[in-house]
Nucleic acid binder design. Structure first.
Lengths: 180, 180
DNA sequence: TATTGTTATACTCTATAACTATA
DNA sequence: TATAGTTATAGAGTATAACAATA
């Protein structure tokens, strides 16, 4: 107790496992559900959601990438898939010629309308129906706070773009200190 | 207000986004960290952890699959990768000739010892250092509870093994009801 | 020089279903 | 017949770095 070991407490281990597994189980189910109902993967659907959120204004590719856990080349690939299906349109940004604005099409909006209810009710059944409203608020507040702090860290899209000698993300986490 | 729509509340949406993104961001960072430090993906490392937990007794393949979000063929593939690297050994179960016991090797144990500290401190820095102990306990209790309930559902390894006409996982979640 | 986005290649992983063997 | 595990194949996705264009 109180030793400066890098070891994790049993509580923390359980917390991490709970977060990890709960999120994965629900994401897996949502992925299956979306493939069946609208023919998109969860990743694609989430991308379409982010683009759709912006309405007719569209959204810069980098902004979409930063809102999600996708690399830029990964986003290019996935948006390409969405474009092939006619769900999204890309055009150069008027103000910054380097940027590309992704915009949802009417067909994309239709797909969103078709897919959201199933997605939502799945998440509701798997997650929210098992929580009291008070618990929901608690978890939300706490996790939302963590998320905001995480988002302030170096952006994924900027990640490792310059030199090769910079350490990734968090500090000394990759030092394999050997263990007792 | 009180309408029977399948729509999700703003609170719920935020909760889901927080869970989804937080978990993904940390998992992504952990994956990078583990690739660098021990040359395994997060998925492989988690599998090795589960096998290692069982010590010299080893663990049935199906039990490992059920503990994680992996299909059986996926597990076969990943355990194959671990076996190639000499981190794991497979042998038929003595009591049930159909089953296979996966057992960690000394090299596997070494790798776990080398990788865990970095993994742990990354998760600690990204997640737990941002939470009070009280918050940690709250989130753990709530999510752990959800997780247990989810685990009581039909197992992933049994999933869709028999006929083809059965609905997947949760109930009527794939009905795209059309929306206003 | 830094940023935005795309591309090309190779590689890893997953999905699906068929298959063997034991219970 | 149901369960445990493997395999084969095809396709989807990712990582990396190089690339072009604009700021």
């Amino acid at each position: 107790m109180g030793t400066p070991e890098p070891s994790i407490s049993a509580d923390e281990m359980r917390a991490w496992a709970a977060l990890f597994e709960t999120s994965n189980i629900v994401q897996y189910a949502a992925d299956r559900n979306l493939r069946d109902s609208v023919g998109l993967t969860l990743a694609q659907f989430e991308i379409l959601l982010r683009i759709g959120e912006a309405g007719t204004d569209g959204r810069r590719m980098t902004d979409v990438a930063d809102a999600l856990t996708v690399s830029r080349s990964g986003l290019t690939y996935q948006v390409g898939q969405l474009e092939k299906k006619g769900l999204v349109r890309r055009e150069p940004a008027p103000d910054d010629e380097r940027s590309v604005i992704a915009q949802i099409t009417p067909a994309g909006l239709d797909l969103l309308r078709a897919g959201v209810p199933g997605y939502v009710s799945l998440v509701r059944e798997m997650l929210f129906d098992r929580l009291s409203h008070a618990d929901l608020m608690t978890v939300t507040e706490i996790l939302d706070d963590v998320r905001k702090q995480l988002k302030e860290q170096p952006k994924r899209s900027t990640f490792r773009r310059a030199s090769r000698k910079t350490a990734p993300a968090v500090s000394g986490a990759s030092g394999a200190d050997a263990v007792g």
